[in-house]
Design a binder for these strands. Structure first.
Lengths: 350, 350
DNA sequence: GACTCCTCCTTAATCAATTAAGACCTTAAT
DNA sequence: ATTAAGGTCTTAATTGATTAAGGAGGAGTC
């Protein structure tokens, strides 16, 4: 049994293909009787409705927004920050009545045609490593693109926060509380899966721009406060998980002298640090201050953090792409805010 | 400036359209020189590569899996259970190199063509209310479909757990611990936004099948234990949030006599109940036992819950749809498991 | 009766590719 | 010299729709 198309129905009813098309897309162009006849036959033949692909081709619109983020999708969905952004993006897509096409990108050096073959009208790219091949593939499509967080590509719409300033704000908060022995735990600097102490060189060669700049903010704030950055223990983890944070926490808190404050890259990591502190019987914030980032999982744990309007960012990204206005602003920098909760306090009076 | 297509390039180079197509899709069919020439001209003209829609039409495959879940997408992304499922589904999509098209469905009586126009090869439908119009729209597309959790449609692949049995297991756990004064808090029974005590009638007329059956499991277990169900306080909330759970908690714990055990529908709700208990200075589990559902947010809080293999379910759903084997099993029932943690204990010895 | 105006339907161009089959030319083998 | 075999490229059919423009017929108007 061959596929049922408009033509099949047209032949059966004895009308032209155009008539059948009208029956579906513009019923007012037909007599009611014929329309019903056509619908009956369509039903009888098991017609699945006008083929969306053909329709898409003819109309020149895909009805979908492409989203590209993070190497492994399963990780992306595990990150509260991504999820928040996704919520915003989904809201915009929902309002515009378009779908959200989430694209897996080639992992390692496996080639993939997903970006090339994605049936979308525009792309949103989030948190890609510097020079990731997927970015070039996206730009090659010559569709509207907005990049979120990283990497910033001059001449293309970008959306993010002032990373160094936000990070510096977080750092200054604990420094002003009087902390001098600061430790740092970060995730998402490299893609090599390394977990352990990060040398200065490693820190500076991070392939994720936003994280690299965030780190720069920490360093600057420390140096402003007269702290020698090379003496600041810096632990890098490969995955953004509570477990990884705990590991970093144990490493950092195992040092002598022990840091009295730990700065982190993400809330999830910070939660792990809290776990490590609990393991060691350290009282937070009396004996240890911890700062998160993004305010994505911080509230319940009473974590001091930097709040980013992730949902709003997602919504804005979506609207930008779906509004159809070609004249997008170059660079949209969103506000951030230091949220002080119960995980930070002045250092102990030893 | 008109659009650049294969033809534009062909004309410019002075070859046939087919040749240009081969240059992109099968370079071995051409002399290296000509291929390079074509690529150069393509670059020069700013060609964006073979149009994916046209390609899709010709090849008869969309390269995407459609996902439909929950009325409001932003809510869906807020639910840890959905997220877990999504992770699994994404993994399968990733392995198969296809995209995941998340479709907003019409909310209220707003009409929408998203399902009709979705460029996908198959659909995964998750947690839709009985008789939701989107379901009919999906089936009308005559593509492979798998329904997850609800609603079960005879004759179509289905994937879920034995809801009544799982719920009964949760209930029996607290009943065997000796609890007699049980309260229930559930979300996702209706779509009318109601929050408050639910009459028997309201309970039974729930439009979400899985939740309805889950409730049935609670009732059955209670009745087996000789508890009169009509005396069991049942609080219904409209949103699956910790805040809503807290509200339900206050309502249930404000009753006299106070329940010694509360069964819930989701982990998130259970966390809210714990919040309420904390508000009232009740010690868990000594004075109150709480049971969650899904093991999606339970571990850190030490919550007793029913574990569902959500990620595995997502992956299975994806593989089923992407494997191309038409002969799908009718009904795939996944195992569940009671995970006893620190939120349940025998009732106080009043 | 001639004209206009609708209503309803058809014609045919268009969207942008893919690909089997065939044509043409060169080279090699018999 | 003839035939076969390759290598390159073209022809043309195909994928499944949408829609502007036009034609046929009937109704209404002067």
């Amino acid at each position: 049994m061959a596929r049922v198309t408009l033509q099949t129905i047209a032949d059966r009813v004895g009308v032209s293909r155009a008539t059948v098309s009208y029956a579906f897309s513009r019923p007012d162009q037909l007599s009611e009787g014929l329309r019903q006849r056509i619908m009956e036959v369509a039903d009888e033949l098991g017609y699945a409705g006008p083929n969306p692909t053909a329709r898409s081709l003819r109309l020149g619109r895909a009805g979908a927004l492409g989203l590209i983020f993070t190497e492994t999708l399963a990780y992306a969905f595990a990150d509260p920050y991504s999820i928040g952004f996704l919520q915003g993006l989904a809201t915009a897509a929902e309002d515009a009545g378009v779908g959200l096409l989430i694209l897996p990108i080639p992992h390692g050096d496996r080639r993939s045609e997903t970006v090339r073959d994605a049936v979308v009208d525009s792309f949103c790219v989030m948190s890609l490593a510097d020079g990731h091949p997927a970015l070039a593939e996206v730009f090659a499509r010559k569709l509207p693109v907005v990049v979120v967080d990283e990497p910033y590509v001059p001449g293309h719409p970008f959306l993010g926060i002032d990373e160094p300033a936000a990070a510096a704000t977080a750092a200054r908060h604990v420094l002003r509380l009087g902390h001098r022995r600061v430790g740092v735990a970060m995730v998402g600097l490299h893609e090599d899966g390394y977990t352990g102490w990060a040398s200065q060189e490693r820190q500076q060669s991070a392939v994720y721009e936003a994280m690299r700049r965030r780190r720069g903010g920490y360093q600057q704030a420390c140096e402003e406060a007269g702290i020698d950055w090379s003496g600041v223990p810096f632990y890098e983890v490969a995955r953004n998980s509570r477990e990884a944070g705990r590991k970093a926490g144990h490493a950092l808190l195992g040092r002598d002298p022990r840091p009295t404050a730990i700065l982190t890259n993400t809330d999830v990591l910070a939660l792990g640090i809290l776990d490590a502190a609990a393991d060691l019987g350290l009282e937070v914030p009396r004996e240890l201050s911890v700062v998160g980032f993004s305010d994505s999982a911080a509230e319940e744990a009473g974590l001091t953090t930097i709040r980013q309007a992730k949902q709003e960012m997602g919504e804005t990204a979506g609207r930008l792409l779906l509004s159809g206005t070609a004249a997008e602003p170059e660079r949209l920098i969103f506000p951030y805010e230091l949220i002080v909760r119960a995980s930070t306090a002045p250092p102990p009076q030893t």
